[in-house]
Computed example of a mutant assay.
Amino acid sequence: MLVLEGHERWVNAVAFSPDGQTVASASSDETIRLWDVASGTKKQVLRGHQRDVMAVAFSPDGQTVASASYDRTIRLWDAATGLEKDKYHLDVEVATLSFSDHGCLITDRGSLSLSHQACDFSIKRPENEIFIREKWVTRNGQRLIWLPPDFRATCAATSGNNVVLGHRSGGLTFLWLN
């Protein structure tokens, strides 16, 4: 287990890069942080949002990080340099983000085309997917790990057998499951 410190307020969302080597964490401290999974070191701090960052996602190629904030913007960042690539001003607050394979950002408020093509809403669920349910880390409906109160997450992300939990303290906990 690895616990990372760095955010000054709640971690609201976490996401693994497609290769599972990097984790992005979004926080109420108005930042997104990119972390190296193997070493736990901070790679980048992405700054620009003016309010709580509520959602974060990696593009399918892992080169772009998207973030959504209560400041009613979605920002696209270069994952390698941490530089802002683009910004979309919205009329609503977005709480969830994911990339489609076809150049679209899927949000809880609809889709945003990044490539000027129609967006596809098909969602596939992988087998043996790991879930965080209340006090438990589960796989295929079976309880694997009970989470003590200090380790219960405000958000979670999985990549294969790896799990990252975001906490109210601003910390992250990594779990590697067999």
Rank of each mutant, 00 (worst) to 15 (best):
N162E: 02
L172C: 06
M1K: 00
T31M: 13
S59Y: 12
D150W: 06
E84R: 09
W176T: 09
L76Y: 03
F99E: 02
S67E: 09
A38W: 06
S27F: 11
Q117G: 05
G141M: 07
G171E: 10
I130E: 01
W77C: 05
V37I: 12
A80R: 09
A55R: 03
Q63F: 06
D108A: 10
W35T: 01
F131R: 02
E84Q: 10
G48W: 07
G40N: 08
R72H: 12
H7M: 10
T22I: 15
T31H: 15
W146P: 03
D29E: 04
E84W: 07
R109C: 06
P149G: 01
L175W: 11
D19R: 00
R125L: 14
R168F: 13
V163P: 11
R33Q: 11
Q44F: 08
L172N: 03
H102I: 14
G170N: 06
S100N: 00
T138R: 10
S122C: 05
K124T: 14
L4I: 10
V53F: 06
T107I: 13
L112D: 00
A68F: 13
D101S: 10
T73E: 04
S122P: 01
A57E: 01
C104R: 00
S27L: 08
F99L: 02
L83C: 03
Q21K: 09
S100C: 05
T31Q: 12
M1S: 13
Q142N: 10
I123F: 11
W146R: 07
T173W: 06
V3W: 05
